[in-house]
């Protein structure tokens, strides 16, 4: 087990953002966490990487409690936040080198991998340009390459498809697949159902801070009484969205 989350709660003032969430992820597994905007996905991610402290419960990464041994736990995680921060004055290559140095990784190995990924994402020339000149998609790719430095045993991708073009999304799926083959676990949070449908071994659906269901896609469909239905139908049904009797949103002609 690379990640074990047990009865985690987090409250912001009057809002309970995460309510008693428990699940685990094994090595070599891709877990897709689905939820609407504001459902608690990013809060959960931030608690896993130690940016937020849970009010209750425990999070263990690679055998280390995130609160008790944060440095050991974090050294097992590669994290791509929803809106990544990159030093605008650094070049892409410098950023990767910086991350490698922070994590105590072999710079040559990390830069070798980064070189391949920059090339694959067609950022070969841009890797020596200042990040401040990058587009949103290029920043996302650079941050992703940084998160993959050293191919950590747990990779957390928060809304990884935002700002990416279709080919880059395809490449991202390939990368996730390779991580699985290498034995790394991937936690992907997204509200893009199609992406999760294509790459996740198991999924979890979170709504209003509560993890409603986990399992393979067919298990989730069966448990929610929608066997054989596509993920969109299952998801919308589970989070209580009625799509059948919508009024004309733009009004009558």
């Amino acid at each position: 087990m690379i990640l074990a989350i047990e009865a985690v709660r987090k409250r912001y003032d009057r809002v309970e953002a995460v309510r008693g969430v428990s699940f685990s992820i094994s090595r070599g597994e891709v877990f897709g966490l689905l939820g609407e905007n504001g459902s608690g996905k990013s809060t959960l991610n931030k608690m896993i990487v130690g940016l937020l402290r849970p009010d209750e419960g425990s999070i263990v990464v690679d055998g280390h409690d995130v609160q008790e041994a944060p440095e050991l736990a974090k050294s097992a995680i590669g994290f791509l936040p929803e809106v990544p921060y990159l030093y605008p004055a650094m070049t892409g290559r410098e950023y990767v080198r910086f991350i490698a140095a922070l994590r105590g990784l072999d710079e040559r190995v990390v830069l070798g991998l980064a070189e391949r990924l920059f090339g694959a994402f067609e950022l070969g020339a841009a890797q020596d340009q200042a990040i401040g000149s990058y587009s949103a998609g290029m920043r996302k790719k650079a941050a992703l390459i940084g998160a993959l430095a050293g191919t950590p045993p747990l990779v957390i991708l928060d809304e990884p498809t935002n700002a990416l073009d279709p080919y880059s999304i395809f490449l991202l799926r390939e990368i996730i697949s390779e991580l699985r083959e290498r034995g790394s676990a991937v936690l992907v949070t997204s509200h893009i159902l199609e992406f999760i449908e294509k790459c996740a071994d198991r999924i979890g659906i979170i709504a209003r801070g509560e993890l409603l269901v986990t399992g393979t896609q067919s298990e989730v469909a069966e448990r929610t009484g929608r066997p054989g239905e596509n993920l969109e139908t299952v998801f919308l049904n589970l989070v209580g969205r009625d799509t059948t009797s919508l009024p004309r949103l733009l009004g009558s002609k």
């Binding site: 440095e71 936040p81 991350i99 922070l102």
Partner: peptide
Amino acid sequence: PECELLLSQPLS
């Protein structure tokens, strides 16, 4: 966000 970047690395 920089705090977020640095604190999500294995740094205390």
